[in-house]
Amino acid sequence: MAAGGDHGSPDSYRSPLASRYASPEMCFVFSDRYKFRTWRQLWLWLAEAEQTLGLPITDEQIQEMKSNLENIDFKMAAEEEKRLRHDVMAHVHTFGHCCPKAAGIIHLGATSCYVGDNTDLIILRNALDLLLPKLARVISRLADFAKERASLPTLGFTHFQPAQLTTVGKRCCLWIQDLCMDLQNLKRVRDDLRFRGVKGTTGTQASFLQLFEGDDHKVEQLDKMVTEKAGFKRAFIITGQTYTRKVDIEVLSVLASLGASVHKICTDIRLLANLKEMEEPFEKQQIGSSAMPYKRNPMRSERCCSLARHLMTLVMDPLQTASVQWFERTLDDSANRRICLAEAFLTADTILNTLQNISEGLVVYPKVIERRIRQELPFMATENIIMAMVKAGGSRQDCHEKIRVLSQQAASVVKQEGGDNDLIERIQVDAYFSPIHSQLDHLLDPSSFTGRASQQVQRFLEEEVYPLLKPYESVMKVKAELCL
């Protein structure tokens, strides 16, 4: 049975990233139509530049190519590739079939990587351009969430054990800070992308030097003109047959890092959902379990974690691919890159769409948070109580021993009897502590235990987050809708 299948058929496997999760716009960027249309555009740009620099290419040939950029006979191309065992030459023939007058000058002087690699770089750039505003929107939604809850005390956790208090907004800023680093890295790697350009079979530009009869300047002009037509500021000066596969490492490393950030955020949300302090959106008709109707599973956060793990592992592909590119190139890269580049971007696209949807509907339960604080705060307040007693004339050592005994009794009630923490009640009825009984409410005010959390939130948002989001103001209103 021949390899390949009808990918629109229910009898043929289709990647869930495309069929179930990723956005239509990201799927289109990695589609065959987008790819092969870009090949034709690159052939047109090459012909236009070659004509401008004096090669015998007519206006009629150029116009014929322009008129057929979208006229792609995919069936013919597939048949040609089956016959020739070469995808680029299959599309040269297919393009030439609908451009008979231009057929002889299509791909003039070029090698397969002229269309293959340059198209990949265009796709990487455009895919990054799709991700950047999506990530900015996630940051914006979380920034709104953090600002609104900047002063809401909550129990902090280290080692997932109760620690000092923080605020809900401050905790959210930990998430935002990681995503801001990801946004900066995505922008950097996007701006650092260079075009492969017009380089020939081993990167020496020998074929173009021959076409222009040894004119170095025209060869350099050709490279520059096509690079500018493709919208790049610069091209690699040095290439082998391909652009260095280190570029793929750079791009997928940034995406993998984004995956790590999203995994951490969504894990926190899942843990908070278990504590009943916070939940992701839950639709009115949504079913959490087929057997347990009360369940409210954090399905979206779980999906993000599941896909983020996949995204983090994909960076190993370009690392290994770059390491086995012998001399000017081997074909070890080809099949692998067809999979890992598309999957990385479709996965990143999915987790950003999902995280935006989550961040637009996060639900906080202040009463649950308050109750958990009441359970733990008495123990945390013991040092403040000791200091207040010393100020009232008591002995630190005597007070410490009193607190120690009462704390152990209260802990026994919590752990052995399943009761509430009654340390404060014990202190309130103990005559030894009568000098500070009137101060206990103040000493137990949760806001006095959150330090500068709310001020940190305000400063972080104003100095770091809002300036970073400013270039994306025009796209901030787009909502994230999930079908599944």
Rank of each mutant, 00 (worst) to 15 (best):
S257I: 08
Q320R: 03
Q455T: 13
N68Y: 08
D398C: 12
A102M: 06
P162R: 03
E228A: 11
L152E: 09
K233F: 11
A256H: 04
I436A: 04
S207I: 08
H400T: 03
W43N: 04
T119Y: 11
D268V: 02
Y114I: 05
D317T: 07
P378W: 01
V115N: 04
Q205K: 02
L252N: 13
F460I: 05
F449Y: 15
P56M: 10
E70D: 15
V457D: 03
D11H: 15
L142V: 10
M76D: 13
W39G: 05
R459M: 13
S454M: 10
P366V: 05
W45Q: 13
N421E: 06
M316L: 13
R337G: 02
Q408H: 13
A102F: 05
P318C: 09
A78E: 14
L222E: 02
L258H: 13
V457S: 06
V413R: 12
I386A: 06
L272P: 04
I427V: 14
D59E: 09
P162C: 08
L108D: 03
L209R: 10
E463N: 11
A127S: 12
T450V: 12
L193T: 09
G5L: 08
Y466N: 11
Q409T: 09
H93R: 14
G203V: 01
T94S: 13
D120F: 08
L377W: 03
L423K: 03
A136D: 04
L131V: 10
A260R: 04
L183R: 04
D223L: 05
G156R: 01
G96I: 09
Q210V: 10
K224F: 12
E79K: 13
D144G: 15
Q61F: 06
A388W: 06
G54Y: 02
P56F: 08
L55W: 07
Q320M: 12
Q184I: 10
S67A: 12
R149V: 12
L377E: 02
S67V: 14
P366W: 06
E280Y: 04
D178A: 05
A453Y: 05
L155A: 01
I385M: 08
W45F: 15
A146Q: 01
K82H: 12
V457W: 01
R33W: 06
E148V: 12
N353R: 15
I373K: 01
I122C: 09
A3L: 11
A392S: 11
M225S: 11
T119A: 14
I373Y: 04
Y34F: 11
K66N: 10
D445W: 10
V29E: 00
E376R: 03
I265L: 15
L179S: 07
H91V: 06
V478T: 14
K170S: 02
T202N: 09
E70F: 15
T382A: 09
M26P: 02
